[in-house]
Design a protein around this nucleic acid. Structure first.
Lengths: 145, 145
DNA sequence: ATCAAAAGTTAGATAAAACTAACTAGAAAA
DNA sequence: TTTTCTAGTTAGTTTTATCTAACTTTTGAT
């Protein structure tokens, strides 16, 4: 509800909550920290911010959930991630590196560039279900930034 | 000489010094600030760091120069910039946006991804002089981050 | 030659994002 | 049911990168 703009790092946290819920059903502070290669207090602080912005819900000492708005925003970010990862793979980049670089790129590219990348990746037969199937294949692993 | 790793922001300052010297012959604090859309004291602080690292030389109250090592590092960064900008333009992105996004991307991509992008941009007939001619066309304008 | 404007510098404040250390709540084992 | 371990939190520090305000040097007009 709060329209304050997300920083890159908050986008990462929000996206990771979403990924972990898709992968495990539950987004724990400990797992968020491991996946982003940070310590738990960093996650706690980020969650305080995301709660203030109304993107995340959390009862003390338990898992993190997304609000409806949070879900909407996180899905956007995750779609960007999937698009960029697919793009890099299409260029011949290995899956692990594609994942890592997509994660960095997803916060900085302009809408125009993202659009052109989309055109490149889906030249004609853009099947809407592509995104969905990619999401199903999500596997969350520890990052080694 | 000092092997401390450059931060993204120091890479930007170093690259801009190089660009301004190529474009104007002289890299002034005021112009560096304008081109990167920051204030002069930010440039002054960055120059202190780059001097410590032995990448930049400057007599007080005058223009900034690159050391040999600084020149080497700056040229690498600038080549990355030129590569990425060309890549984006090839995808159909407008020149201004390509420049801006290349500037963000140049700090974060892995060697593997940069290599694949190079393959994509120069499929076969990679003329060495391409880089040089791009440099000649450099025009430094005020950034509006 | 003087002095005002422009360019450069220094000092100190603020904000983001991480960390460590120390504390608290909850879950699991004895 | 205690106790212990794990997960989560809070407080305070550090680093990076910006800023504003105040000061200094240089330049250049008069």
């Amino acid at each position: 509800m709060d329209h304050t703009k997300l920083t890159q790092s908050l986008e990462d946290y929000l996206e990771m909550v979403h990924m972990l819920r898709l992968a495990n059903g539950l987004a724990r502070v400990k797992d968020i920290a491991a996946a982003l290669a940070v310590k738990m207090p960093s996650v706690a602080k980020a969650m305080v911010e995301l709660k203030k912005m109304g993107l995340v819900r959390q009862e003390p000492y338990s898992g993190v959930e997304l609000t409806e708005e949070g879900e909407r925003v996180a899905a956007m970010i995750l779609n960007r991630h999937i698009l960029l990862k697919g793009f890099l793979i299409k260029l011949g980049v290995s899956e692990a590196i594609a994942d890592k670089d997509a994660c960095s790129m997803e916060h900085i590219l302009s809408a125009e560039t993202l659009g052109k990348i989309e055109d490149f990746v889906k030249p004609s037969n853009a099947i809407a279900s592509a995104k969905v199937s990619s999401v199903k294949k999500l596997r969350v692993v520890k990052n080694t930034k």
